[in-house]
Design a protein around this nucleic acid. Sequence first.
DNA 1: GAACCTCAGTGTTCTAGAACTCTCTTCCGG
DNA 2: CCGGAAGAGAGTTCTAGAACACTGAGGTTC
Lengths: 252, 252
Amino acid sequence: MNGVRMDGKLGARVPRYHRIAEALRERIGSGQLAAGARLDNQRKLAQSFGVTLMTLRQALELLERDHLITRRHGLGTFVAAPSIDYDILQLRRFAGDLSAKGEHVATRLLGTRFGAADRRVAEALRLSPNARVLGLERLRLVDGHPMSLQRSFLPSPIGDEVVRADLALTPLHQVLEFKLGVVITHARETVSAVRLGRREARDLGCRAGEPAFESERVSFNAAGAPIVFDRVFIPGDRFRITRELHYEGASS
Amino acid sequence: MNGVRMDGKLGARVPRYHRIAEALRERIGSGQLAAGARLDNQRKLAQSFGVTLMTLRQALELLERDHLITRRHGLGTFVAAPSIDYDILQLRRFAGDLSAKGEHVATRLLGTRFGAADRRVAEALRLSPNARVLGLERLRLVDGHPMSLQRSFLPSPIGDEVVRADLALTPLHQVLEFKLGVVITHARETVSAVRLGRREARDLGCRAGEPAFESERVSFNAAGAPIVFDRVFIPGDRFRITRELHYEGASS
DNA sequence: GAACCTCAGTGTTCTAGAACTCTCTTCCGG
DNA sequence: CCGGAAGAGAGTTCTAGAACACTGAGGTTC
């Protein structure tokens, strides 16, 4: 990173197996290798990349660690169903979380609209029912595939400012922080398992009735005032929550 | 050829590099290798275990993935600082310990049975596929209503002991701790959203196809050996995950 | 029909090196 | 005193196999 290797001769000192993994990642990302498809067997792959079996396997190792493929002894190597681990212990935000794993994350703004808050939104934001709020609808894409549908609601004073920013380019939390000086310090999140509604399913490119996570989150600033309410839908086959638990019991 | 242990059929066939990782894990766990200590260099370690560098490195790979060691190019291999995750530790279990909330919780034992481990179970418990495991099926009732269906799997040596206890009366973790001296110190849990199968729905008293949480958990003892695998189903309308998030001054 | 056997295809483990890179220390020339 | 060169010690990448183990399919036997 810092040590800039500009000396042309070596240039790319990326290990062979990294490059192979990259090439395969490409094939998977581009759809050339669809989810569930079986790759060539390892010996063939090794030969086609001109490396040893061991080297190829190192590449597969990388991909498996990222859940891009699964290997099954005696059967073959398969493109994994797209599914993402959300390490619930890491409080990093969604986008940051995934990009840390080397996936390409994009956000598509589906629309913004002022309207009346529904009951849950009003309650969460401590507004009177039917108060005017700004609603944002965004689709998160991971490697080009829809991952989650996010509906955010902001109280109209804040919303008035936010709506002037280019949300297609600037993440919401940056708009809040740098344009409005509002910093989110904590949040409360509730996750439940639901059936996808028709509209949500359409936007997410799957069938209505599919099981999904629904996460409702209220974010607060340091003063404890609610700033934004998010409702996120994530199809169950594209997402997992993992966490580590530590039981202390021993010394008590 | 090399000391292959042909003992019986159970648990044999553990790859060399797994055993080496286990041995090192032991040294680290016992304090023989303190945090921050540098291990022998890889070639020496390989020699002392009587394997090739490549094989030894596979063992180190495992340990690094578990954050037990860190490797630094040009410097050496070090026992990792026990840094990770002090804070958030919600020690309560995901599906357990609802009793903390004052509800009346009961457990009904639906059945116990020895059988062959399925792929996920075998993998999680590090057994060979189709190894014999004890399966327990339990229904958790909160205030008399079915809340969750829990299927637990234990390796047969442990299962043999467990099955003699009166699980209708004694919680599993107590049986493990007081009858077998096995203490669960940590676990890894993965939660996904699924559709309930017919059998599960029947036991839980709801309709097949309903959205539900599925939690898979592997519990480990202090030595890092997997002890029990749990698969829990909870209908989506009966349960929510709630958590508080605190964003530190991370400037990213 | 059920249970067993065998076999081809595929992933997994392991060997015995060789060459390379990275970090730090030491030493030499200025 | 400073700055670079040299070297030692450590991790990393890669080769060219060989032997082993798992899965599923298709026969064979009872």
